[in-house]
Amino acid sequence: VDYIVEYDYDAQHDDELTIRKGDIIKNVKKLEEEGWLEGELNGKRGMFPDNFVKEIK
């Protein structure tokens, strides 16, 4: 499942992704941690907030 970024987010920890509006995040999975998703961007896998992105259908 792929998501498109709607709002910029700067990573706060090493396991998070810095994302920018218009980025496409690939292979996204829901995490047990409420409010977070995990996906791949530019060869890096990491977490990001689910309210900054929208699923591409």
Rank of each mutant, 00 (worst) to 15 (best):
V1R: 11
V1M: 07
V1F: 05
V1D: 06
V1Q: 10
D2S: 14
D2I: 09
D2N: 15
D2E: 13
Y3I: 02
Y3T: 03
Y3W: 08
Y3H: 02
I4R: 07
I4P: 01
I4A: 07
V5E: 00
V5T: 13
V5D: 00
V5H: 01
E6V: 15
E6N: 04
E6F: 08
E6K: 05
E6M: 14
Y7G: 15
Y7I: 08
Y7E: 15
Y7S: 14
D8L: 03
D8M: 08
D8H: 04
D8F: 04
D8T: 06
Y9K: 05
Y9F: 12
Y9M: 02
Y9V: 02
Y9W: 10
Y9T: 01
D10W: 14
D10Y: 15
D10G: 06
D10A: 13
A11Y: 02
A11M: 12
A11R: 08
A11G: 09
Q12M: 12
Q12Y: 07
Q12H: 13
Q12A: 11
Q12W: 07
H13P: 01
H13I: 08
H13W: 09
H13D: 10
H13M: 08
H13R: 14
H13K: 14
H13G: 08
D14V: 12
D14Q: 10
D14H: 14
D14Y: 14
D14W: 09
D14P: 13
D15Y: 09
D15M: 12
E16H: 09
E16P: 00
E16A: 07
E16F: 06
E16V: 06
E16M: 06
L17E: 00
L17Y: 01
L17G: 01
L17D: 00
L17M: 08
T18A: 05
T18W: 05
T18R: 04
I19F: 08
I19P: 00
I19M: 15
I19G: 04
I19A: 05
R20F: 06
R20W: 04
R20Y: 08
R20T: 08
R20S: 05
R20E: 05
K21Y: 07
K21T: 09
K21A: 11
K21S: 07
K21F: 06
G22Q: 04
G22V: 01
G22L: 05
G22R: 05
D23K: 03
D23M: 07
D23R: 02
D23E: 15
D23H: 08
I24A: 02
I25N: 00
I25K: 01
I25V: 12
I25S: 00
I25Y: 00
I25P: 02
K26N: 11
K26I: 12
K26D: 03
K26M: 06
K26W: 10
K26A: 10
K26P: 01
N27E: 11
N27W: 13
N27S: 13
N27V: 06
N27I: 04
N27R: 13
N27F: 10
N27A: 10
V28H: 01
V28F: 01
V28L: 02
V28T: 07
K29N: 08
K29V: 11
K29W: 14
K29T: 12
K29F: 15
K29D: 11
K29I: 12
K29Q: 11
K30L: 10
K30E: 08
K30D: 07
K30P: 14
K30T: 09
K30G: 10
L31D: 05
L31I: 11
L31G: 11
E32T: 13
E32P: 10
E32F: 13
E32Y: 07
E32A: 10
E32I: 08
E33H: 08
E33R: 14
E33I: 14
E33F: 13
E34Q: 13
E34K: 13
E34A: 12
E34H: 12
G35K: 06
G35Y: 04
G35H: 10
G35T: 07
G35R: 06
G35N: 08
W36H: 04
W36S: 03
W36I: 07
W36K: 07
L37I: 05
L37W: 04
L37T: 04
E38V: 12
E38G: 06
E38A: 10
E38Y: 11
E38S: 13
G39I: 00
G39N: 00
G39D: 00
G39H: 00
G39E: 00
E40N: 09
E40V: 12
L41P: 00
L41Y: 09
L41Q: 04
L41D: 02
N42Y: 12
N42V: 06
N42Q: 09
N42K: 12
N42L: 10
G43V: 02
G43M: 07
G43T: 06
G43P: 00
G43E: 08
K44D: 09
K44H: 11
K44I: 11
R45Y: 11
G46I: 05
M47F: 08
M47D: 03
M47S: 12
M47K: 10
M47T: 12
M47E: 06
F48K: 00
F48N: 01
F48T: 01
F48Q: 00
F48W: 02
P49S: 15
P49K: 15
P49Y: 12
P49R: 14
P49E: 06
P49L: 14
P49Q: 14
D50K: 15
D50T: 09
D50Y: 05
D50N: 12
N51F: 03
N51S: 14
N51A: 13
N51M: 08
F52Y: 13
F52N: 05
F52P: 02
F52M: 11
F52G: 04
F52K: 06
F52V: 09
V53F: 02
V53K: 02
V53A: 15
V53H: 02
K54P: 02
K54Q: 08
K54I: 05
K54Y: 04
E55L: 04
I56K: 02
I56P: 02
I56G: 02
K57M: 15
K57Q: 15
